[in-house]
Design a protein around this nucleic acid. Sequence first.
DNA 1: AGTCTGCCTG
DNA 2: CAGGCAGACT
Length: 591
Amino acid sequence: MDPNSILLSPQPQICSHLAEACMEGERSSSPPELGRDSQFPWSQVASCSPSDPEWFGDEHIQAKRARVETIVRGMCLSPNPLVPGSAQAGDSPRCPEKARERKRKQSLPTQQGPLMPPPAWDQGNRKGGPRVREQLHLLKQQLSHLQEHILQAAKPRDTAQGPGGCGTRKGPLSAKQGNGCGPRPWAADGDHQQGSSKDLSGAEKHQESEDPRFLPSGAPDSLEILRKELTRAVSRAVDSVLQKVLLDPPGRLTHLGRSFQGQVPEGRSEPSPVGEACEDPLALAALPRRVQLQAGVPVGNLSLAKPLDSPRYPIPPRMIPKRCQDLPANCPLTAPSHIQENQILSELLGYGCNKGHWSSSPPQDSSSQRHPSSEPTLRPWRTTKPQPLVLSQQQCPLPFTSAHLESLRLLPSVKMEQGGLHAITEALPFSSVHIQEGLNPGHLKKAKLMFFFARYPSSNLLKAYFPDVQFNRCITSQMIKWFSNFREFYYIQMEKSARQAISDGVTNSKMLVVLRNSELFRALNMHYNKGNDFEVPDCFLEIASLTLQEFFRAVSAGRDSDPSWKKPIYKIISKLDSDIPEIFKSSSYPQ
DNA sequence: AGTCTGCCTG
DNA sequence: CAGGCAGACT
């Protein structure tokens, strides 16, 4: 049996009353696989989603950023060209809709205004990142120089020092300095965090406790001066850098996060999820429009699925983990025991909000979620996703965490004035902790994923699955509206595919099965799971197949002449909601 | 009356 | 995706 053949073995809880519509075929024993290029040699490299240009909504800013970063890093970074919003081959009817998607905000301004990060994040000072890094680099150099002075003074008597003395202290700093000049300054910082637990803030303490042993007896005064200078320098350095970052958390962080992405030589290769999605064979493959037919049935140039008897292709290992089942409710937060300012800074600089959580993404519209700065918010929920092009992510698998923020509070030399920490804490919402009054892109994403299980969720169900949302009438209706919109898209796709099948000569509705490599699936997946970072449950494929068959039968029977011909279909589908995995009840899922 | 839903529109 | 509207339902 072709593992790709998702048959309609009725799910007890969802298909009982539609058993007649279910295929007799047995469910494939092996798990369904996602379509991949290797599976479909005929697949063409389709254009990226029409929403791609949204990534680069502001070309000028992109260009500026690129120039600044080019100067700072000495790297050549060409601005990302706008990806032509070429329409997808088979989705022309909905393309205008996609184009319109950019127009609206996602959230209710009145309710979400105070709590939602302003879209202006994205337009923050784009020169800030490189400047901050530059400054940090300079400060590190100064620090190193100062320390070297001290060490020089201590050296004459330093011969007897054991391990852990100045020599070992100096190493990390020197190395860091060198790294700081390299192309991956912050990554280098991160590399040293473990080993050099005395960098920056630690240096001060370290010297205070040990340096006197190495000093010439006649130099306590000068050393004292040096030490104080060093202390002040370090304090100022950290304060200034942190202040810069903290005072403008969203835009700055977003920008900084992107700056790292900008290091990718080729703009198009920015490790944005959309880019990945574009490169994802499943998402991009212009799959043949075929209809899965039962054995013996002639196959025309049909749509929707590939024939059951289609050639079998090597099944690649599953690329996407089953998050529904595998993911814990909350990803463990890494709380390094040796948190250093450098690390914090590295994270501050390396992790834009774009990598941490939903709220970072400008709530412009649905497609804004695919913005490079926002889409990655969903990425951390991949269990393993090496992103070699995003340096900061190589250092830490997790974005900002409350543990990290907590560590910020512990920094001895970081003087958080004017409630700086509070400011950043407020500015960086953690859905797992805070009850939000408004809905953010993360909620939307979650709702879309929930749609795979439930097309008609009740308001009570939604309340149960969005514990971090302070529901009120408007919020509830907004979320209900989301699902209404989801259904609208879903049914439109179904009707379109059904009509296509009819025009392609399909006569038996049971021949219609939605497979993971079908164009219909691709369209749905792109809509509800654009990053393709969630494995669409089989039950959804079954429901989709049933829906498709219902539409097919209705249209075939000419019932579509009735203005309300879809109502019976809706009624059927409305009864096919399945249980949503418990994991979705976690406010942090799928963060 | 309030809620839910679908349709149309921007 | 959000607004607005109308129809159905409780």
